[in-house]
């Protein structure tokens, strides 16, 4: 997104972004927090309210536009990305946000998601991942873990789940990040970063569905386990985690290794995070093992995994039009209708 502010804007607050519609998510749903953080950052992003558009698909998260006092469309299942592509292609000046879920963006809409990312439209995808189908009442989703018992998998799911960020990296997303509903400060930071990025931003947000998949991310969000199980990425800083910042990740050749800081290793030995390093980004998204399995494992990273600058589809598209006009002049309808060869029939 463009970070320049053209005109002084009236000072708005989060309240100005709320609508008169009653919010109808289940009490305790993680969506409430995400809505609150989005409303909080909106006054500060430097875009007039009327230039903000939120487009969603279908699913619990996709009710989002109704609660945001901006332009919005609650569209059809999986297609928010495709609709947003058409909108952004024709109205590049708008700030377009796509609100979607793990089913909406990775299952029924998986195709549009990867194609949007490769084209690099300058839009922000907020992918609420709760690892379950909530709106249809509790079937497994493309991000549910193997063996998960749900309404549609009484004997356990035999599907292997997507790693959403690896998928985004594979589709050449120009901004890849992760945050969570229960860390408001981090989420606000990540939302702002997503907005500031010029190009497609893919932000996965861990969101707790307290009805059908309660506690799916507890290990990353609860005070007791969070420090050991999460790794907050900061550009230029070593990968350090742990309750007393006593652990780190070091690269042993091409293999990331968890080490204790102290006698053998200092922070200087660790992997230094570089948001612009594609290859490191590819490895970081793969720190994705199941924390509930026994044995040594990696903490789950949060933050900006990767960011790069690449031309945006809508800009190149506009440029082609300008070039055509510069070359041939503005289209002349009479000339077009006449074509190359005509003949006269006399009266």
């Amino acid at each position: 997104m463009s970070t320049t502010i053209q005109t002084p804007l009236p000072t708005l607050t989060a309240k100005d972004f709320a609508t008169d519609q009653e919010v109808r998510w289940c009490p305790g749903c993680g969506d409430y927090s995400i809505l609150a953080q989005v409303q909080k950052i909106m006054p500060g992003i430097g875009v007039p309210k009327e230039n903000i558009v939120i487009i969603s698909g279908i699913g619990c998260s996709s009710r989002f536009p109704y609660y945001m006092n901006t332009y919005g469309m609650h569209s059809i299942h999986g297609r928010a990305t495709a609709i947003a592509s058409g909108l952004k292609a024709t109205r590049p000046e708008l700030s377009v946000w796509i609100v979607t879920g793990d089913g909406d963006s990775l299952s029924i809409g998986g195709n549009h998601t990867i194609h949007l990312l490769r084209r690099n439209f300058d839009v922000n995808i907020l992918m609420f991942n709760n690892q379950i189908y909530g709106l249809t009442k509790g079937q497994y989703s493309p991000t549910s873990e193997e063996n998960k018992v749900t309404k549609s998998t009484p004997f356990g799911s035999i599907d292997h789940p997507f790693n959403p960020l690896a998928l985004a990296m594979g589709a050449d997303a120009s901004f890849v990040g992760r945050s969570m509903d229960r860390d408001p400060k981090h989420l606000q930071y990540m939302l702002t970063r997503s907005h500031q990025h010029k190009g497609s931003s893919f932000l996965e947000i861990y969101q707790n569905c307290n009805i059908f998949n309660d506690g799916a991310f507890e290990i990353f969000t609860e005070k007791s386990t969070k420090p050991e199980e999460t790794l907050f990425l900061e550009h230029g800083k070593p990968l350090v985690f742990g309750a007393s910042q006593n652990k780190g990740i070091r690269l042993d050749g091409l293999k990331p290794v968890v080490v204790e800081l102290g006698e053998n290793y200092t922070a200087d030995d660790l992997w230094i995070h570089d948001e612009r390093d594609f290859f490191k980004g590819q490895m970081l998204v793969r720190l994705f093992d199941d924390p509930n399995k026994a044995g040594l494992h990696y903490p789950r990273p949060f933050g900006v995994f990767f960011e790069t600058d690449r031309p945006c589809y809508e800009d190149v598209m506009a440029m082609q039009l300008e070039e055509a006009i510069a070359l041939k002049g503005k289209g002349d309808l009479d000339k077009l209708l006449r074509g190359r060869e005509v003949w006269e029939i006399a009266g």
Partner: peptide, 18 residues
């Protein structure tokens, strides 16, 4: 577009944008 559905969906987005 990447498929027929994206074809019409992107056109809907464009019409929504005027």
């Amino acid at each position: 577009a990447e498929d027929e559905i994206a074809g019409i969906s992107s056109a809907i987005g464009a019409s929504y944008g005027g």
